[in-house]
Nucleic acid binder design. Structure first.
Lengths: 281, 281
DNA sequence: CTGCGCTCATACCGCTGCGGTATCGGACCC
DNA sequence: GGGTCCGATACCGCAGCGGTATGAGCGCAG
């Protein structure tokens, strides 16, 4: 199987429509139909069922979609990492990716501690929207990432745990619920006048439902202060809170684990150094 | 980058010789030279330095070799898993791979317990030479593997620990060293008349050195009984020992962790069931 | 039930680019 | 300096990719 075939397949699977997929790929529809048919013949498996409104995946197709995404990310990663090694022969900067606006204290400690090491190399910090760090790591745009389980999918990476913490509910100061000693997630979700914000998905769209769309944490905290929303955050986020907010522990929210993650087989001395430093924090 | 290019590159890198690589690939030398040159042009990086006796990898080339192997394994896995899902639509057997002749007790318990589950599917057990299980899992020939850290590279897989154990030295009964309460690895290696056997590498070749080549555990144990060798094994292997052998604990040998490993993103209900069962053992 | 619209499949064509053979250029060795 | 062993280059034929035109199957409106 060639990566071209996999790219074509993924496009068709995602669009559920050969014509649209062809447009997206910048080719005509017939060659794409033919390429898919050829792929199916070679695999000896139907990947799509043709319907009058487009195509839908078979179970074999679903398997291939999952696997193809991993494989394509691996090929992309190979290309990008090779380019990076070639460009900055020797002391290439390490690219560290983290969620914008989170773990700032931990990150600062890590970067300071690492910079003090004798053999430290330059660290490029790339802050991305939530959820994108694992993707960056998978396709070679980043060398190390700070991830948060269980939100990020760390499968396929080597990880070191840095911090385990509980989550708390942040509400407007003076709200009736703010005096409670603890709460469950279900209770937090059902406070009538305080909806929880919705987080964007990987593609930037938002799930349906009530609650404001979360774009910027400080903006949402402003909404909380105004008595228009509540939000669930890891407990260390309290450190950055200003007045007008109350904190209630959640008894049944999943614990958040902050980890440092890197691709297996990494040989970069910078990655090794960062991970070593992180382990000592 | 197309997988064809990656396959060509890997062949040349492994042979360190364009002509031989071409033969191995079943094509002529000039197209291969051209393909490599084109790959280098597209990456904007020299991958090989040409010498009068062949070619050697640059640092960019070494990076690409490592990454390309991962990427190619992922592509192969995609193909194989899709084929398998298509062939045995529905209740496909799960392929479990393990080291031949090891963990037999644990495996039996696992398979028995799993077979007793209400929704159990068929399990194909594939016993392979040591070290091959991770490869099988990586390229899609197996769905689950029993691996042994630190010997197997579990990076890139999801794992559950099943058993942690110490290693012991097995020697002929009556040997002077057999009365010792404990020993270090270095001492074990330097017993003058009892060489440790050599384990085969992934490609089937053996490292240089003294000691018999290990092909079959029972054969080596026979050698031990005859006073011609000693061997280091996990302590549970004692259960299968017969007369004529003595056991000495090793104080500094790495602990061996038996794990059950599966590829991330696995959706097979059989894999999930096996892992769940294993976790309850 | 018939015609239209929408979708994917098929037919056919042109050209890119892969792989083939022949040959060159350079390094090393006697 | 000729022989040998490399990889690189030159050139050619053809497989296969992508293009346009058109067919075939299905759902639906009238």
């Amino acid at each position: 199987m060639e990566t071209r075939e996999l790219r074509y397949f993924v496009a068709v699977a995602e669009e559920a429509h050969v014509g649209r997929a062809a447009t997206r790929l910048g080719i005509a529809q017939p060659p794409l139909s033919r390429a898919i048919a050829q792929l199916e013949r070679r695999l000896g498996a139907a990947l799509f069922t043709r319907t009058p409104r487009g195509v839908t995946l078979t179970s074999a197709g679903e398997t291939l979609l999952r696997e193809a995404r991993v494989a394509l990310a691996a090929v992309e990663a190979a290309e990008r990492r090779t380019r990076r090694v070639a460009e900055a022969a020797g002391r290439a900067p390490v690219v560290l990716t983290a969620k914008a606006g989170a773990s700032s204290e931990l990150m600062a400690k890590l970067l300071d501690a690492y910079a003090a090491e004798p053999d430290a190399v330059e660290v490029d910090v790339v802050l991305t929207p939530p959820g994108h760090q694992a993707v960056m790591l998978r396709d070679g745009r980043a060398d190390v990432a700070i991830l948060h389980r269980p939100f990020d999918d760390t499968s396929g990476f080597d990880v070191d745990e840095l911090l385990v913490e509980e989550q708390v509910l942040i509400l407007p100061a003076g709200h009736p619920a703010s005096t409670r000693a603890a709460m469950t997630l279900a209770e937090a979700r059902s406070i009538p006048d305080l909806p929880l914000p919705r987080w964007p998905r990987l593609d930037g769209s938002y799930p349906e439902g009530p609650g404001p769309e979360l774009r910027d944490l400080t903006q949402v905290l402003q909404l909380v202060r105004l008595g228009r929303a509540a939000i669930v955050l890891p407990e260390t986020a309290q450190a950055n809170l200003r007045d007008g907010l109350a904190v209630v522990p959640l008894s049944d929210a999943p614990r958040v684990t902050t980890v440092i993650a890197w691709p297996p087989h990494s040989t970069s001395p910078g990655v090794a150094g960062l991970v070593r430093t992180a382990g000592r924090l």
